[in-house]
């Protein structure tokens, strides 16, 4: 019942976001209202805590990594609406004859790749892989076993023999995966 504005975006800004992300005006309005709802302090930007206040995200084993993805391109430790929508745009379903580099197969793969690549050097090392594995299994599997899983995964995907997975190798390894479906969600109008 708060005095939440329905939409405070200027028309030109709306048009820019539409062009950049491919979302419709209605979808952007919806996302904006969600954004303001998450912004508990009313500062116009989201902090890490604002994200992790969503219980379903807080209990997601990769929740913190997903939140980090929003902060990758921001100088400060806050995310404004433009950045917020841009990240979400990766998850728009792929449509024929409507190319947008964010939600293309490659865009989606890049997003996933960056979740592993913690130090942002465009390679996934054994340690980075191990860290993600650990987040997903928690205390349930021994570190030795995880290590051998990580080693094996790198061995399988590594083609140039540098002991790491580069983006091209990553794409090759996921060649047969239905990335378009698994990395898409539906946005309501």
């Amino acid at each position: 019942m708060g005095s939440r504005p329905s939409l405070l975006l200027r028309d030109e800004e709306l048009a820019e976001i539409q062009k950049e992300t491919g979302f419709s005006a209605n979808q952007i309005e919806r996302l904006y209202s969600r954004f303001t709802a998450l912004d508990k302090t009313g500062s116009g930007a989201l902090s890490r805590e604002d994200f992790l206040r969503i219980p379903e995200l807080a209990i997601n084993p990769l929740g913190e990594r997903i939140v980090m993805a929003f902060f990758r391109h921001s100088e400060e430790d806050r995310v404004n609406f433009r950045q917020f929508v841009r990240v979400l745009a990766h998850f728009r379903p792929v449509k024929k004859n409507k190319d947008n580099k964010l939600n293309s197969r490659e865009g989606k793969l890049k997003f996933a790749f960056k979740l592993y690549d913690l130090d942002d050097d465009d390679r996934i090392t054994k340690e980075e892989l191990l860290a993600v594995l650990q987040m997903m299994v928690g205390e349930n599997i021994s570190e030795d076993q995880l290590m051998s899983i990580a080693e094996r995964t790198i061995l399988e995907s590594d083609m140039d023999g540098d002991g790491m997975i580069g983006f091209e190798e990553f794409c090759k390894a996921l060649e047969r995966s239905e990335v378009e479906q698994k990395m898409s969600i539906r946005f309501l109008n």
Binding site: L31, L38, I54, E56, P61, L62, L88, F91, L115, I185
Partner: peptide, 16 residues
């Protein structure tokens, strides 16, 4: 490597 997709998708859905 695609195992993370499931969690990522759920996470993004929760954000939306």
């Amino acid at each position: 490597l695609s195992d993370i997709f499931h969690f990522v998708k759920n996470g993004i859905e929760a954000i939306v």
